[in-house]
Design a protein around this nucleic acid. Sequence first.
DNA 1: ACAAAACCGTTGCAAATACAACAAATGGAG
DNA 2: CTCCATTTGTTGTATTTGCAACGGTTTTGT
Lengths: 224, 224
Amino acid sequence: MQVPLSFLKKTSLFRGTTEEELPTLLDCLKPSYRDFAKGEIILRQGEDVSAVGLVLSGRAQVIEEDFWGNRNILADAMPGDLFAESYAFLPGELLRVSVVAEEPSRIMLVDSRRMLEICSSACRFHTRLVQDVLAESARKNLALTRKLSHMSKRTTREKLLSYLSGQSLAAGSETFEIPFNRQQLADYLCVDRSAMSNELCKMRDEGLLSFDRSNFHLKSEIEV
Amino acid sequence: MQVPLSFLKKTSLFRGTTEEELPTLLDCLKPSYRDFAKGEIILRQGEDVSAVGLVLSGRAQVIEEDFWGNRNILADAMPGDLFAESYAFLPGELLRVSVVAEEPSRIMLVDSRRMLEICSSACRFHTRLVQDVLAESARKNLALTRKLSHMSKRTTREKLLSYLSGQSLAAGSETFEIPFNRQQLADYLCVDRSAMSNELCKMRDEGLLSFDRSNFHLKSEIEV
DNA sequence: ACAAAACCGTTGCAAATACAACAAATGGAG
DNA sequence: CTCCATTTGTTGTATTTGCAACGGTTTTGT
């Protein structure tokens, strides 16, 4: 099946592999390719998956269904995005989510054992592949931990301060830009937009910070 | 430095390695060992770490400090526990947390590059080591995602239903035991204990579920 | 068996939140 | 420039939550 190498090498899975090395590596990984119609289930809750999924085209949604059948979208995988990797590397761990094609999609499935067990064999590009996978897992981990540390705060104000403080530290400046608009920030912090907007303005009036759109400035100085 | 192999092989890092293979693997990894006094900083916020930490004895706390200096304990690493692995496998990612010895502690530091780059060399136990590390990262990932999916709910009731529904699915039964007491469950879901207790009883009175201590039973049937 | 500690449910109240509805500001497209 | 859609701020109200305090029950240590 034809897959542009220029596309693959930009994905998080093959970030450390060059375009010249890719054919050899793919030869070794023996991935399978499958096309899914819109609405078709790629992976079903309860399955024991051993392959990581890579979206080549289309769009896949990771969905969780609870005891009463309520659905909840956990992730939206676009072309180049990886999914099910946490399950694939945990043998015996059953899928708690389903992955559904939201559009007609082409998916690449790579057996996790092929990624790991042949490490000592001929294909020397495995090392970088493993580094990429581990890095990707670590990256997700940090993102989750960060979000969790904001959300564990009880009030909207505390959540905001936790998030903004983190952004400030990351930017290395008291003035910084955030990658969200108000609605997105509210969704990220899991609070009501209007209540959050309200709280932001209160904090501004109290002199804790100032902002213009997505531009924020935290004030460390103690006001008189 | 003397470290009982029987202890090491039980840690998540060396779970897949047998006691006989450990000396060879350790020879290859060349870990460093360090002792820390109570209160001493093991890793400092802002550093660029390339080694994963393993607590051999004592206790290490992962602490986050925000813009205004407020401290927040993110994790409590006991003997056998791994820390800083998410940062170690992301070159260039600066520590957003500090790790502090809460008691006199002995720590083992393993360079992440040694764990990955020598994959194709002589030491064939690397493969299983890499599997263990990836599995551990994936495990943490799932645990975080799970917790996040509960906490993203707005009300205490929804959080409880999300958590209990998940436990029920995991147990494969409508009746199941949870590993928390009320206070711990409240801490896990980041809500007030008494309010949560109140909500639980309301749901019981409404016929949604029943419980006795840590034993729960969800009712899917629609009551008349 | 006894005392102390831990755990759990309950209640009242002040504070924070979600929700809805609307006004003001902003930014593009025609 | 005007119209329209999007984004943001504002307000009021019903709900929900956090907090503090208390009593009853179970568990634990001695």
